[in-house]
Nucleic acid binder design. Structure first.
Lengths: 152, 152
DNA sequence: TATTGTTATACTCTATAACTATA
DNA sequence: TATAGTTATAGAGTATAACAATA
C-alpha cells in the first residue's frame, strides 16, 4: 500500500514545509489512519465506517428517516439509499413507511442488526484506542471536543 | 418516537449517539469541511489539496524524489505519478533524473510553478482561517499539535 | 535480484440529474 | 408546486499488479 520510509521519515519532511502548518492536510492523514485502524479491527472490507455508523445511528434514534440520517452523517441522499440497501441486504434493517407521511422511509434495526452492533462496537472502540494510542485520556477528550467545534 | 428533523440539527442527533463519541467520524466530517473550504477558496476544482500540497512540498524540499514525496504525503506511488503528470502538464514542474541514481525522478518547480504557489498560498491560508473560525488561536494550535501526534 | 517509476486496469465513493409517489 | 426517496450514470480518487529501466 504505502511504501516504507527509509532514511527520511515522513514527519521530518513535512515539519519544514508549508503543509506541516495546515489543519486540512493533517485531518486528511489522520482520517486515513483512522480508516486503516477501523478496517484492521473489523476485518471485513465491506463493513465500512459509514455503513456501521449508519446502523448505529438508526439504533440510537428509532424512527429517524433517511433524509435526517443523511444530514446527521453528512452524506448525500443517494449515498444514503445505497447504505440502507446494503444494510437491508444483510438483514440488519428493514425499510418501513412513516405513518404520518408516506413519502418518508424509516429504517428499523432488526434483531440481527442489533446483534451485529453488539459484535462490532467493541471492535470499533478498540480501533479508536489504537488510533489515539499516543495521546493521554485528557488529550483524547480535548481532540474530540476541538474537532466537534470545527463542525457546523 | 423521536420527532424528525427540522428542530434537531445534525449535531444534536449525533450528540446522543455512538458516533458522537468517535474520533474517526469527526475526522471524516472535519476533513469534508476542510475540503469544501479549500475548494471554495481556490475556485478551480482541478486544483485539489493534494495537488497543491505536492507542488508546495517539492518547492520546500528541492531535490526530493517521487518516492519520498509519496511517503511524506501518504500517497500511493502510482497516485504520485498522476499528480506529477498534472503538475508537469501545467508547466509548474519538470521531471529531472537524479544524477546519482538514474532510476529516481526528481521533480523541479519551474518559475511558473513558483508564481502559482505565490498566488494560491494566501488562498489556502484563508481557507484554513475559515475552517478554524470557531477556534481561538490557542485552540487552533492545540488542535494542530494533537493531530500531528496522531500521525505515524 | 531488488528498486524506482510507470502504465493499465479495476474498483470504490460520491455527485448529478431525472423520475415516482406522495403531500 | 414542493418534498422524500429512488435510480442511472458519470466522474474523481485510489489501489493492484505487471512492466521497463537501472542499480
Amino acid at each position: 500500500m504505502i511504501p516504507p520510509s527509509t532514511d527520511s521519515p515522513a514527519h521530518a519532511v513535512r515539519e519544514r514545509a508549508f503543509i506541516g502548518t495546515l489543519l486540512g492536510f493533517h485531518l486528511r492523514v489522520a482520517q486515513l489512519k483512522a480508516f486503516g485502524a477501523f478496517a484492521k479491527a473489523i476485518g471485513d472490507p465491506t463493513l465500512t465506517p459509514l455503513l456501521l455508523g449508519t446502523l448505529s445511528l438508526i439504533d440510537d434514534h428509532p424512527g429517524i428517516n433517511q433524509g435526517d440520517l443523511a444530514v446527521a452523517l453528512v452524506a448525500d441522499p443517494s449515498t444514503m439509499v445505497r447504505l440502507i440497501d446494503q444494510l437491508e441486504k444483510r438483514g440488519w434493517v428493514v425499510r418501513e413507511t412513516a405513518p404520518h407521511d408516506r413519502r418518508q422511509t424509516v429504517p428499523r434495526v432488526t434483531d440481527d442488526g442489533r446483534a451485529a452492533l453488539g459484535r462490532v462496537k467493541p471492535l470499533i472502540r478498540a480501533s479508536e484506542d489504537e488510533l489515539a494510542a499516543g495521546l493521554s485520556e485528557q488529550e483524547r477528550d480535548s481532540l474530540l471536543s476541538l474537532l466537534r467545534r470545527l463542525l457546523p
